[in-house]
Design a protein around this nucleic acid. Structure first.
Lengths: 348, 348
DNA sequence: GCTTGCAATGTAACCGGTTACATTGCCTCT
DNA sequence: AGAGGCAATGTAACCGGTTACATTGCAAGC
């Protein structure tokens, strides 16, 4: 491998001059600069970034530590992060703990000396542990994880507010008996969305004991919830799923049972994954603005890198309600709907 | 920042012993090893990977250079790559040239000394340029880019074979007048798919001048193609789009025009993006197995890293036909379909 | 008792850059 | 002419690890 010393020798100068010439420092003669550049060209010299990072004490890259790589979430997030990183000339070092919370610490440690800052999305479990593993020396921003005690900067989505907005919207549209399908136990997003739903429903309709079904964010669990509702002949007229995939599963089962989603029963999701636009009927949902989440986190991290020791306020992004056809009520009245569910329930 | 020298001092040993103890070398007494470990713990020492990489001449990470981060492609690819990288304890360094071919060279150079190998997906234009920029010293695998001349190892999808299979399938299903909607000019995937379509159609039906419409992989261009066909009253009974997004656009316009996709006109795509499963009707397509592409490329790269100088054969993955409802013919005969298109064309 | 051998530990070079500081050489000013 | 100043260039230390080689100390063998 050709090093800067080879270039210096080839050009007949010292390594210092070579370094200066190649880094556009202005304290080299134009003549020697050209000579050095030519030598580098001749030897097809490529600087060794690792070595460069070591002396300059900066790496021009940021680490991204994620709990897993499932779903739309991660790609949107990366897209947002990348946009900002690119604008600042930074590379992305990706680390995935593959759903294993024990990997978290080692993932964060492995980043030491390879990145200028860290974007960390803690897994649902043991995130306290992870936060403690963060070295105070390397700037870090937490993704989607409010942690009021620890002073680590964070960027998150207002899941609770989003769920409140959706709940109010459903009620405004005339839906009264709304059931909520939750995500995995312990999941922070799901818990916040459920809290928003419960609070808004109490406020708006006075309902104190709303119906809740446990799901796990998978399409299958959404389908299962719908089957449960049909079999149980529950008198409901809308289903609010904690994420879109479950809503999609729901819709599939309802359609198979001959129940017209939208007209007869409202279905809403959360996330606004691309699929939501294309299902039949298209799905009413909250756009979680995940790319913007990533971008905001990257911006915040870069600010932190440039101004170490600052303690920025947590950012909370408001999701946006996207009303589509799955919540357009048909001619049938609410009572008629409910009874229809009961009938269809038998035939399924 | 605490370094290994700090740890050594704290434990009252030399840096060599500290390094040995921390790296599980067996030539240290258990007693001193424990003493050093304890000291490291006390100082909460985290090794500086950058420095480590420099001396060991290996970084335990691989670089991934992509033309952009659009669509499903990239997330699936990363997922596949990550699976293998993780299994081998490697990190991923991501670089995105943001659709700018001129960035390619600098992206590859920036990786020098930070990765043990490179996974490169050349942009459509100027990929020759990029291949030349690859240093022979750092192992690299080309993604989705056959390059028979240059001896760079590669992994790709058999786009042509896939398109042939789909074309034959459509003909078997009874579709006769098939139009192909291509992707962007210069796009390698699109060109190969088109070639497969043209060849298979000539083989199977003897058609020498198949209908081709130029698209650009966007949903809008698929919609535009459908509008063109309707307005032009083209006597066709199936549309084969070079990717799924265009097929989705097609279906939307056809449905709006009152033409029943599947029954009256077949529509097929390519890629099998998640949406394809959920559209109404669900979309017949070729599963491009992108995650497997990434995984295969990562495997090949790791092989190359472990056995430098080897010249593995290019890998070509066969895509898989996924027959769904958009190509299920209804009762109406082909002739009836065509005339119906003509009628509907007027009314749109 | 003295050499030999071996295991544990220490010293210092090295990886490939950057840069503080030293040196050189030339120009200008008195 | 000599001092002073400044710009160009060179020397060598340094970043934080790893490791070849040197050294030490102790047990075994003669």
């Amino acid at each position: 491998m050709v090093t800067i010393r080879d270039v210096a020798r080839e050009a007949g100068v010292s390594v210092a001059s070579a370094s200066r010439a190649l880094n556009n420092h202005d304290n080299v003669t134009a003549a020697t600069r050209d000579r050095i550049r030519a030598a580098a060209q001749r030897l097809s010299y490529v600087p060794h970034s690792g070595a460069r990072n070591l002396t300059r004490q900066k790496t021009d890259s940021i680490g991204v530590v994620l709990p897993d790589l499932f779903g739309e979430f991660f790609s949107e997030l990366i897209r947002g992060i990348d946009r900002i990183a690119y604008a600042h000339g930074l590379q992305l070092l990706l680390s995935n703990m593959h759903g294993n919370p024990h990997e978290a610490t080692s993932a964060v440690r492995a980043m030491r000396g390879r990145v200028d800052g860290l974007l960390v999305m803690p897994p649902d479990a043991q995130h306290q542990h992870l936060i403690e593993a963060l070295s105070p020396a390397v700037p870090a921003v937490l993704l989607n994880c409010h942690d009021p005690r620890a002073g680590v900067p964070s960027v998150g989505i207002d899941n609770e507010g989003g769920a409140r907005a959706m709940t109010r919207f459903l009620v405004e549209r005339g839906y009264r008996r709304i059931v909520f399908v939750s995500g995995p136990r312990n999941n922070r997003d799901s818990a916040a969305r459920q809290a928003g739903f419960v609070a808004a429903l109490a406020e708006v309709t006075g309902e104190r004991h709303p119906l809740l079904i446990a799901g796990d964010f998978s399409e299958a669990s959404g389908a299962e919830a719908a089957r449960l509702l049909i079999a149980g002949r529950m008198p409901i007229d809308a289903i609010f799923c904690a994420n879109d995939m479950m809503a999609v599963g729901c819709c599939g089962v309802l359609a198979d049972a001959g129940i017209e989603v939208g007209a007869e029963i409202g279905v809403a999701g959360f996330d606004d994954i691309p699929i939501a636009h294309y299902t039949a009927p298209s799905l009413t949902t909250m756009n979680a603005r995940i790319a913007e989440l990533g971008a905001a986190a990257a911006e915040k991290l870069i600010g932190l890198i440039m101004k170490p020791g600052s303690r920025p306020e947590p950012t909370v992004l408001a999701p946006q309600l996207i009303a589509r056809l799955s919540t357009v009520r048909g001619e049938a009245s609410r009572r008629a709907n409910t009874s229809k569910i009961l009938q269809k329930g038998k035939s399924s």
